[in-house]
Nucleic acid binder design. Structure first.
Length: 325
DNA sequence: CGAATTTGACCTGCGC
DNA sequence: GCGCAGGTCAAATTCG
């Protein structure tokens, strides 16, 4: 597939310049009038600017929005071209595209591929979950309940932590009980296995492992959905140990259900916070009055350089485009 | 002392 | 059938 990569310019070339970004009354910027990618900037009550500056800022943001629109439409075109090529290829070589139905175990990489495939609207016959194999799986599932887990909703969470932070703890608002740790072949860093502390009432599991490319990024893979509310939201969002930064969430449930709308969210937070809080533009009393400039710059630099972030962003965009088509 | 975590052993599925 | 690798179990250990 490398030869196709040249067709699509994945460079987003986002104009992330924090020094000119920290202004007031720009609470939420939305691309394409949608919520899939929202950058939020804290307002500074102490800072006041003239209306001229604000107008200029508004123009700049509008221009940037327009640029992003153009880029997105261009990527849509590229995607459609690529997809038509792929469909044509699959028509010509139907037998080569079939993955053995017996191949149930998925490596992390193939798991990602499946997610991408299905988020891109590629027919299920192209991967291991074709109709024929699903009937086989149903037969198996009657004997082996563990297969049910594979059908559960799977999502991935990318969390940046401090480089010297060796723990595999992802603060997501739920309580987890660690039941295992394993060093896998494709990654020297150990993978930790967690069950929701409400188990067996709540069947959700998660796996946490450091990214191979960037070990400061934790990749948490969630299986299943919680049937209860978050038990430690406060700890997850503003606790003393809330040191991580959520880079993105890429739900993968659509990988097993082609007709379900791919729910792709990529919330970028300069500090951990609840979703409900982000809807309320009023600054909280316990929140710092202003995001430190240095921190913002550091975040922007590290994000734009981070291949994992780019990959997550690309996955989110491709999923969105497939939904659009 | 009870709960949570660690860690080696064991189980299961897949590829050869 | 065998070996490998991922996933899970459960006894031992640690922590509050």
């Amino acid at each position: 597939m490398d030869k196709y990569s040249s067709w699509i310019n994945t460079s987003l070339d986002l104009n992330i310049n924090p020094s000119s970004r920290v202004h007031e009354e720009v609470p939420k910027k939305e691309v394409q009038g949608n919520n899939f990618f929202a950058l939020e900037w804290k307002s500074s009550p102490a800072k006041k600017e003239s209306s001229g500056d604000l107008e200029e800022e508004l123009k700049r943001v509008s221009a940037e929005n327009k640029k992003l629109n153009e880029m997105l439409s261009e990527m849509c075109d590229n995607y459609n071209t690529l997809r038509s090529h792929l469909m044509e290829y699959m028509r010509k070589n139907p037998e080569k595209d079939e993955i053995s139905p017996s191949k149930k175990r998925k490596s992390e990489s193939s798991n990602n591929n499946n997610n991408n495939n299905n988020n891109s609207g590629i027919p299920m016959g192209a991967n291991g979950n074709s109709d024929s194999s699903s009937t086989d799986e149903e037969e198996d599932s009657s004997k082996k309940p563990r297969q049910e887990i594979i059908k559960a909703k799977i999502s991935k969470l990318f969390v940046r932590t401090e480089a010297n932070d060796t723990s595999l703890i992802v603060k997501d608002g739920y309580q987890w009980r660690k039941y295992g740790q394993k060093v896998t072949r494709d990654n020297p860093c150990p993978r930790a296995y967690f069950k929701c502390s409400f188990a067996p009432t709540c069947p959700v599991k998660k796996k946490v492992q450091r990214s191979v490319e960037d070990q400061s990024v934790l990749v948490a893979t969630y299986e299943g959905e919680h049937n209860h509310s978050q038990s430690s939201q406060i700890e997850a969002t503003s606790g003393p140990n809330a040191r991580s930064v959520t880079l993105g969430v890429v739900p993968c449930s659509s990988s097993l259900r082609p007709n379900s709308p791919p729910k792709v969210t990529l919330d970028i937070m300069t500090k951990p916070k609840s979703l409900t809080e982000s809807e309320n533009p009023k600054p909280k009393l316990d929140s710092p009055p202003e995001v430190p400039q240095v921190f913002v710059e550091q975040m922007a630099t590290s994000l734009t350089k981070d291949p994992n972030f780019r990959a997550a962003l690309l996955a989110a965009i491709s999923g969105r485009m497939s939904h659009k088509n």
